[in-house]
Design a protein around this nucleic acid. Sequence first.
RNA 1: GGCCCGGUGGUCUAGCGGUUAGGACGCCUCCCUUUCAAGGAGGAAAUCGCGGGUUCGAGUCCCGUCCGGGCUACCA
Length: 543
Amino acid sequence: MSVRVRYAPSPTGSPHVGNIRTALYNHLFAKRHGGVNILRLEDTDRARFVLGCEEEIEESMRYVGIEWQEGVGATAEGGGRFGPYRQSERNEAGIYEPHWRKLLDDGSAYWAFDTPEELKEMREFQELNKQSTGYYGGQWRDATEAQAEVARVAGKPGVVRLKVPRGEKIVVEDAIRGRIEYESDVVDDPVLIKADGMPTYHFAAMVDDHLMEVSHIFRGEEWISSAPKHVVLFKALGWAPPVMVHLPVIKGKDGSKLSKRHGDTACLDFRRAGFMGEALANFIALIGWAPGGDREVMSLDEMAEAFDLKGLQPSSGVFDFDKLVWMSGMHVRRTDPRVLLQKVVEYARRPETEHYWSSRVPAPGEVDPHVRLRGLRLLAESAKPQEPSSHDSPAGPTVGVGQASMPRFTEDYALEAVKLEQERTSSLAEFGEKCEFFFVDAVEFDPKAVENWLHEPHVAPLFEWIADQIGNRGWESHQVAAADWEALLREAQAVLNLDKLGPVVHPVRVALTGSTAGPGLFELMAVLGPVRVKTRLAATQGY
RNA sequence: GGCCCGGUGGUCUAGCGGUUAGGACGCCUCCCUUUCAAGGAGGAAAUCGCGGGUUCGAGUCCCGUCCGGGCUACCA
């Protein structure tokens, strides 16, 4: 049997991470078995339809790296040979009607004309008598065609309901949990066709799954209690049901269902926050799925190769943001620096990035979003293609003729900066504040760092000596390797008669970066270049 | 209320009748080191929700119970 799966969201809002995880599993499973992944839109509820969210669905999927070969947005002609793939269009095309007509004809379904008031009354009565609530027939389940005709002629709006057999056992086979049995007497008769002529999820989704030859249904756990209805429906239609896979929910840190309260929950929120799609995919895939062994950090391809229904979890999981950050860092480190720079620049240039951070109130201990944005902007700016230069030095070509003129920022310079920060950065956004000092004219100092390292008496003569040496050695006209910087600073240590390298390294670092933390000093100096080093050293006078 | 699903350290999980209950995040200590990370080595942290059984032996099987979640719409 060939694997055909579908992600079938309803366009009622931007997909959150739980939805996207379902979509991701579809993709992984399809890829694992060389099958087909379908994107189908369940837009049968006109009241809840949200304009523009179809794009958000596709964006979300592309962001985390989900591929689909068929359906809405697929490259195939018309989306594929089972189109259309929007249920509203399918209904218009008359795809569902013959099937519910057939159910009506053979007595598997019936017309019901209850008013909302009548239904409400029924429910209240049931609750009062501690019965299970639901529609178990009322006066319409066994009404004659003549009675139905009377109601129809009277202009009463009617719905088509499935006639769930009574006194039977309904067995649902769930791929994760196994066999689940239901007394058919507690399964109420679901509406198949609404009064407005639209099919409900129960009907449209199942008919489509069959027509589209779907082999496995991946969907949220909240569907599990509707599953018996679907089993009955398939049987009534004379079709074999697909394998059902009910996925556990993703909860927030406090154990409740993930919601706005928990911060970012929409998939695209994480793109705005600067997480690479693959990292998010890796992280959410592992809530509810264990690849076996001790594997955790995986690419999409690796996950697809390892994906197996057996690793799926029946219990719900908590979204642990800290672990996402860790996972994200692991992916940052795995990424080729050139690709990484490209991603950072792309991120920096996306308008939503600016919106996201500028409207954000920083949590205690969180970096100032404005510093982050400034760094991102500078990074993107420098990575702009410049007029061609003959030499591709990391320090970049110099502007003007004077010896001490400031080298311009180039893409290569940005690349070197990203390379140096790569292993200590855990998201695209973080490159903002991490790389900022590479690009600014005047470094912003951390008061504490200044206090600790710039007030030592040896600092002024140290900086002076280094500046002199840069001049004396004629370093300003070319780039200087990290090893040469190291040699210079070690010499400074000897000249100033310091017993450790620390008192040399730390003040210089503060002068150059404004901070006590960061990449290796010598490497960093090699990237900044002699001119900038000298300038920054001089700028600390007065501190 | 009714029906259904779930329950291994704070979190994600391995386990599938016999293990000192393993790994990962987070936390702590140490090493590496010019700082911060990363990396390496350790540590604290789970009587496997609880109570009964079955068994020589149970996280693993059975029953009960508690807690959490879902559904109970002409929403999906």
